[in-house]
Computed example of a mutant assay.
Amino acid sequence: MTVRRNRGVVWRGPISTLREDSTVATFGGEGVQAHMRKWHVTADLTFAAVDQFEIARVLVNRHQLKAGGYVGINTNSTTLSGTVRDRTYLGSELPNTYDAILDLAEVRGGFDLDVNPATLTFDLFFPRRGTRRDDIVLGDHNIRSWSRDEDATKQASEVFGIGHGEGAATLIATAQDSSAVAVYGLTQRVFSRKNVLALVNLQAAVDRQLASFSLPPRVVGVTVGPDDPPLGSYQVGDEIRVTIPSLYRPIAGWRRIYGIDVVWNGSSEDVVLAVGEIGPDLQNPVFPASDQEAMERAELLRRVDTLERVDQT
């Protein structure tokens, strides 16, 4: 399905759900990247000191070269990030292609990604997507409503990462946030990256997870109109100034746009911006790109692939 606005393609993706009653048929879909969530690496792939952009492109290309696997994603770009990684993907473990790409993107020195809905180009951004927009300010003059949900169910002040190997030879990395321990106590989280052979890469992923989970995700859904600021003049990844006089925790400062949702409210359009704090390394959000649950519980967006998907329906 393709959605056009002002003669331009603003969204494209497969229709995945249908809900129908006596008066309305509602179609649901995800962006083009939804295809990659159903892909798996089925043959061994090993990369030694290879640019992370090239690894991501190879992961996409390997599936599209399979019979019936091509969906039109264009990976012809030759730009590089300048950051090299070591990665091994074992066909016997059948790692998910999209998760493998996010594992590359989420570490320090990682990147943002997108599939352009108009051209289907696989766009990779280093160090990150978006710009700081001095011209866009959200406040009493243009905010129609806002909502905030904070969820500490996944908070962790210490993170363990399990890498390649078995038994005593298993690669393990850990990191702890002492300030989070002082507030929440010693809470722990374990994740697995069995395809990671190098300790430095596993440690980078652990550090990224700790930065993401040591504090609960703080995402605010801000509803504005389509004209102020003009819809299409900003994108996911941009930083804008937001002022909200909350009694609990006022907001006044720069926030990054992590999702955009356009909703018809019965008489006009509402634009819901998911805005959050800027990550500590300015390359990743304060919640992981692969962690959708917090956003879904907040009911801000039907689905957000951070920094990657602009859903306009």
Score class of each variant (00 low, 15 high):
Pro229Phe: 08
Gly109Arg: 15
His164Thr: 06
Pro285Cys: 13
Gly221Lys: 08
Leu18Ala: 12
His40Glu: 12
Asp305Gly: 07
Val219Gly: 02
Val84Gly: 01
Ser212Leu: 07
Leu273Ser: 08
Gln203Arg: 14
Asp281Arg: 05
Leu124Glu: 06
Arg133Ile: 06
Ile162Cys: 06
Ser81Leu: 05
Phe287Tyr: 14
Asp228Pro: 00
Val190Tyr: 07
Thr170Ser: 13
Val183Leu: 15
Tyr184Pro: 01
Ile240Glu: 05
Gly161Tyr: 07
Ala56Arg: 04
Ile55Glu: 06
Gly139Pro: 10
Val206Leu: 09
Trp254Ala: 09
Gly253His: 05
Glu269Val: 10
Asn116His: 02
Tyr184Ile: 01
Gly279Asn: 13
Ile143Trp: 12
Ile101Asn: 01
Thr223Cys: 09
Ser157Ala: 13
Asp51His: 01
Trp11Ser: 03
His35Asn: 08
Gly276Ser: 09
Gln209Asp: 14
Pro245Gln: 11
Thr153Gly: 12
Phe111Glu: 03
Asn284Phe: 11
Ser246Val: 11
Gly69Ile: 13
Ile55Val: 15
Thr2Arg: 09
Ala43Gln: 11
Asn201Met: 09
Arg129Trp: 02
Ser214Phe: 04
Leu197Pro: 01
Leu301Phe: 10
Ser267Ala: 09
Asn201Tyr: 15
Gly13Gln: 05
Ala204Cys: 11
Ala274Gln: 11
Asp51Gly: 02
Thr78Ser: 04
Arg132Phe: 01
Leu202Ile: 15
Pro288Cys: 04
Gly8Cys: 00
Val107Gln: 14
Arg62Val: 15
Ala105Phe: 10
Ser77Lys: 01
Gly139Ala: 09
Ile143Gly: 07
Ala289Met: 13
Pro229Thr: 07
Val137Arg: 05
Gln64Asn: 00
Ser179Ile: 15
Thr313Leu: 14
Val236Thr: 01
Leu124Gly: 10
Val190Thr: 08
Thr83Trp: 06
Ser147Lys: 05
Phe213Leu: 15
Gly82Pro: 03
Gly29Leu: 06
Ile73Val: 13
Thr17Asp: 12
Arg256Gly: 05
Ser81Arg: 02
Gln176Ser: 05
Thr187His: 13
Gly163Val: 14
Trp39Gln: 07
Ser214Cys: 15
Asn76Phe: 02
Phe287Cys: 08
Val219Met: 10
Ala182Arg: 12
Thr46Met: 10
Arg57Leu: 00
Ile244Tyr: 10
Arg5Thr: 02
Asp149His: 11
Ala34Lys: 13
Arg108Phe: 15
Leu138His: 04
Val236His: 03
Gly8Asn: 00
Pro117His: 00
Ala48Ile: 06
Val9Glu: 01
Ala175Gln: 14
Gln188Thr: 14
Val196Lys: 04
Val41His: 05
Asp291Trp: 06
Asp151Tyr: 12
